[in-house]
């Protein structure tokens, strides 16, 4: 389980919520649970092969999961998963 921090462009899936608690012991499991709770959100984060899209950064606490174990990075209920997109505009 982890606290997931949702960026503005994805809050339309989470009824405007900035943070969502999702069950799961890894990044992959938490994203899958997020999709179950908020259908449609996963395809915004992951491509058809299930990998994180190139322009999305996932952070387990303050670490980019690319530098950890990517989708297999373990998460506990003390962890925060942040979904951070590229920056738009100006």
């Amino acid at each position: 389980m982890a606290k997931v921090r949702i960026p503005t462009p994805l809050r339309k899936f989470t009824d405007g919520k900035e943070e969502v608690i999702a069950a799961g012991a890894s990044v992959r499991a938490v994203i899958d649970e997020l999709e179950r709770m908020h259908p449609g959100i996963k395809t915004k984060i992951c491509d058809d092969s299930g990998a994180v899209r190139k322009f999305i950064n996932l952070f387990a606490n303050e670490e980019d999961v690319r530098f950890l174990q990517a989708m297999d990075t373990p998460l506990t209920d003390k962890d925060e998963l942040s979904i951070v997109p590229a920056i738009a505009g100006g």
């Binding site: 462009p9 899209r53 322009f55 590229a86 738009a88 505009g89």
Partner: peptide, 21 residues
């Protein structure tokens, strides 16, 4: 404009989901 609100074209805006300049 980027096709979607969540995009990777840094510096560009998807106006339908943004504060319009």
């Amino acid at each position: 404009q980027p096709e979607d609100a969540l995009h990777g074209l840094e510096g560009l805006k998807h106006l339908p989901s943004s504060i319009v300049p």
